[in-house]
Computed example of a mutant assay.
Amino acid sequence: MTPARTLDSTLAGCAIVIADECSTGDLDVLLSSRGATVRRAVVPSPGAAHGLGPAAIHAARGEVDAVIIVSVSAAGSWVDAADRADALESVRRRAASGRLLLVSVGAGVADRLRDAELRTAVSEHEHPTSSADRVIEHFVRGGAPSLPTDAGLVEVRSGGVVVDGVFVPLSRSAVALIDALATAGGRVISRAELGAALPGPQRTPHAVEAAVARLREALGQRVLVHTVVKRGYRLAVTET
């Protein structure tokens, strides 16, 4: 069982993509120093569209928590790549829910994303701290969706889950399960529905049961997943 650790980094478990024309910058350092995993998608450059396509797919699947888009050309490349990968609608849904944060550096970038019906937060200044502040504001000050549960407030991130202020790292399969359960908001999810959320080919009822067991083991004493006999599973959302 992977031990939980106190959330000493505000962006622990967050995967962030920076779409820019250069491969390095201070923004990477600012975000990674807070615990985020950061990578750059450099545009425009040879092969850039190929690199953005997988990034868009990962964002649509919940494997990316934030995309920071630094220029109008990068915004156009991002939207086009998501469209070509048949991921644009999923990106729209995740951005609308707050589960995926899209940060536009400047009004021109924001306009390009809004033309594609993508919800975006705007960083008014090009200085890296402005974009970093927008990300921190989203994930630390209530912008990211969270749910009250029997174990405390729960927020799903691509690398795990924050439960009552403690980050618990999880496998990709476990994140996919907890993400689906959190999206349902306490509604019972059948094994077939959860199987559809699992990555990879193993989506049988037995595979779902095994994945739920591993998720519970990783969560330790935190009881977040309830079994509903003959129906499926639900997140232990506190009744309000």
Rank of each mutant, 00 (worst) to 15 (best):
R39N: 05
G159P: 10
I136E: 05
S173N: 07
I68M: 03
G152W: 11
D65V: 13
G186K: 00
T227V: 14
I16T: 02
R157S: 06
A144Q: 01
D179P: 04
A87T: 06
P128E: 08
E217F: 00
V228A: 12
P128M: 01
R231I: 02
A74H: 08
I68D: 05
Y233Q: 04
L100S: 03
V67P: 03
D83Y: 12
D179T: 09
R92L: 09
A116M: 01
H127T: 02
Q221F: 04
G53H: 14
I16Y: 01
P199Q: 09
L118H: 04
A60H: 07
T149S: 14
L224W: 03
L102V: 07
A59S: 15
R92A: 12
L170M: 09
R92I: 02
R114P: 03
R157W: 12
V105G: 03
D65E: 10
V122M: 08
D80F: 14
A60F: 05
V42I: 14
D20I: 07
R231K: 14
V166Q: 15
D8G: 12
S190Y: 07
G160I: 08
E217N: 11
R141W: 00
G160N: 08
V42E: 09
A176T: 07
T2W: 09
L27S: 10
R112F: 04
S77D: 13
V103E: 09
V229W: 15
A4T: 13
A41Q: 09
L235K: 08
T149V: 04
Q202C: 10
D164S: 15
I57D: 06
R94N: 06
L181P: 05
V38Q: 11
V163I: 15
E89H: 15
G76I: 09
S123Q: 00
G62V: 09
G51P: 02
P201I: 03
H206N: 13
P199M: 11
G53M: 15
T120W: 06
I189D: 04
V135K: 00
L198H: 14
C14L: 12
